[in-house]
Design a protein around this nucleic acid. Sequence first.
DNA 1: GAAGAATTCAAACAAATGTTTTAAGCTGTC
DNA 2: GACAGCTTAAAACATTTGTTTGAATTCTTC
Lengths: 233, 233
Amino acid sequence: MKQVFKDSGVAISEKKKTIEGNAGPVRDRLLDTAERLFSEHGFEGTSVRDLASAAGCNIASVNYYFGGKEKLYEEVLRRHLIPMTDIRIASIDKVMAQSNGKPELEVLLRAFANAFIEPLADEARASRFMKLMAREMIDSNLPSDMFVKDVIIPTMTAMRTGLVKACPGLDESKVPLIVHSVIGQLVHAVHSERMLEQAKAADIPKFELAKVIEHIVKFSAAGIRAYAREKSE
Amino acid sequence: MKQVFKDSGVAISEKKKTIEGNAGPVRDRLLDTAERLFSEHGFEGTSVRDLASAAGCNIASVNYYFGGKEKLYEEVLRRHLIPMTDIRIASIDKVMAQSNGKPELEVLLRAFANAFIEPLADEARASRFMKLMAREMIDSNLPSDMFVKDVIIPTMTAMRTGLVKACPGLDESKVPLIVHSVIGQLVHAVHSERMLEQAKAADIPKFELAKVIEHIVKFSAAGIRAYAREKSE
DNA sequence: GAAGAATTCAAACAAATGTTTTAAGCTGTC
DNA sequence: GACAGCTTAAAACATTTGTTTGAATTCTTC
């Protein structure tokens, strides 16, 4: 028999007052705490007891609400992954619509770069969830290929079709490589910022995110045009 | 009193015949096994018992030879990290020397790209160690900042000085950003190859490493020249 | 306010963790 | 062959792990 676990039910009842500090119902507190601890110490590095005590609830709550540590982890990712991907794709679609399907290359790149990083912009939650994503890229604690299927592929395809329309003179076989280059720069930007901040590396300058994005736009646009020129000659 | 643990001693005694299969002395077998298991399941995901049974030795050996699981992990990384970094830097220096300190941009980039990926070229060991490095970037199990100090910074500085000489008309304040872009592409190339292979993603084409490198060289060279042009105007 | 459901709690579970201990085995030297 | 030193071995160590249990408590509903 399949057991069903409780959702927060906040939309239905809404009777629980949010007690400041440990706000909200236990289920939500657990989700927030899990997002923080999982991203800080990884899945295996976070114990159910850590979670419970940080969320200010009993150990059994994890199993009561989610049916286990693993299911909780899935829930944490599911809560953000899909919305995040949707934002990125929507942002591309918007640019496409505003430019009658033929946007200027820089505009498209800028929109994508912003959409890629923006969901991670609000400092606190940002680096936490990015850490989680980075972990997930390395060894998935997720069932099957949810991460690749629901995040990577949709994002890449949206960017791919966008690029083809922005640069009609582009060899389509090269587009996937180009998308990889852009995404690689973006991922690395977020990564290295995090990595270099924890080790206070005096030798390596710190960048403002806005300047990094403008650089990536300019750098990538030039790289792409190199291909477009070549084709049109 | 500080305890000293045994090294392999293979250079001194060389008396133990390598028993095929589990070849070499226990200490070396443990190092190899640890490299594999740590990269596959992470530090916390690998138990001392896993290590011992995979290496075909007793549980106590880990403590006997290395003084603990943590020390073994350090040793595994130390064994490859520094040599790897040296190869990369040497490769850049070589190009600089061969071109009297003013290499063609594409040549420099190609040398760097190859040196970056080549140590990871021999399939088996490659992805294993790259996985380890990726893990290390996310949460360091290493003491202090060994990774950033011994790997990241030296590599970046070498590339930085190389770039400045290859492109005299380059705004030096932009060089760090450019280096980030190149490294970001390279890291992502290795990453995504691994990630997408485990999830058999039919939608995303697989690339030959050689072609990826040539793409990154071309793409980046164009991006860099965009800056160089701007300055010289 | 009482019945019944939903939630919280402390305690206990078996299994797995890294490390230590103590004894046995091995190797080379005299 | 006996001694010494290094290496391996099995067992036990104390913790910690995720999960389950069953009773206590709180909340909801009538």
